[in-house]
């Protein structure tokens, strides 16, 4: 646990001291604000709860992109600059390195997600939504964020360069995104099984509508765990290469 915190603290310092962290935060919040004004609020009259649902749907997209951008550097940058050697020759387990890096990115992404809370608060100016709906939506965003971050960590663990890491993570996430479309053209029961892998429609949409279901929480938690486990195995196997 101690080693995880040592790794996470240094990573967090790196996010806060280099411009990339701020750049990602600023760009994400800007896009989120624009989307809220143009898509969620829109021109015509709309139910307040529909505005919130549209906002959360758009936020799932910005959260995913931010997760990829935040994680692509985690291993790939250190591999390029040669600093991974310090971690790999210290008495720290690979799993501790992976979890420490993931945690630092999760802290940054969580701050970023919570910083957007002023947008749904704006709905109260001219309308009314339940606080519970907003909270459920944000729990969903955090869980989706954790899952996409862990896929990003896996991409970064596999890649030599940051660009490759970004591309790999995007491919992994896109595969889970495509599961829904694929499930509609595959006959059940296989189609139903594939649908359950869907990162957005199957598991995020309930949160978007204000529902917190145990099955969705378990899905995101398992995906996060498995992707971090795979990252650890990847890092361990690289010593044999």
């Amino acid at each position: 646990m101690n080693n995880i915190m040592i790794v996470a603290r240094r990573e967090l310092g790196s996010y806060l001291r280099t411009p990339s962290g701020y750049l990602i935060a600023a760009a994400t919040l800007l896009v989120q604000g624009l989307l809220f004004n143009t898509r969620a609020l829109g021109d015509g009259a709309k139910l307040s709860s529909q505005v919130l649902i549209d906002f959360l749907r758009d936020s799932s997209g910005t959260t995913t992109v931010a997760a990829v951008l935040l994680t692509m550097r985690l291993f790939a940058e250190e591999r390029q600059s040669g600093t991974l050697v310090l971690l790999f020759t210290s008495p720290v387990r690979e799993s501790e390195i992976v979890v420490g890096k993931f945690l630092s990115a999760f802290v940054v992404l969580s701050l970023l997600i919570l910083a957007s809370a002023y947008l749904p608060a704006l709905i109260f100016v001219n309308g009314k939504v339940s606080i519970g709906h907003i909270v459920a939506g944000y729990v969903g965003l955090l869980l989706l964020g954790a899952a996409t971050l862990s896929l990003g960590v896996l991409g970064s663990a596999l890649a030599r360069t940051q660009i490759m890491a970004g591309v790999l993570s995007a491919v992994f996430i896109f595969m889970f995104f495509l599961a829904w479309a694929l499930s509609s053209v595959v006959e059940p029961p296989l189609g139903t099984v594939i649908a359950h892998f869907s990162l957005y429609e199957m598991h995020f949409f309930p949160f978007m509508r204000g529902l917190v279901q145990l099955s969705d929480v378990v899905y995101y938690a398992s995906l996060t765990y498995l992707a971090l486990l795979a990252s650890t195995r990847v890092i361990q196997s690289q010593r044999w290469q």
């Binding site: 080693n3 040592i6 310092g13 040669g82 050697v85 210290s90 720290v92």
Partner: peptide
């Protein structure tokens, strides 16, 4: 271990870096 390229984090100060390296080693 000192590899052929020293594993340094450019954004850290020397003192912070040595603290980090020390903590990693317990």
């Amino acid at each position: 271990y000192l590899p052929d390229t020293p594993p340094l984090y450019p954004e850290m100060t020397v003192s912070e870096y040595l603290e980090f390296a020390g903590r990693l080693r317990g």
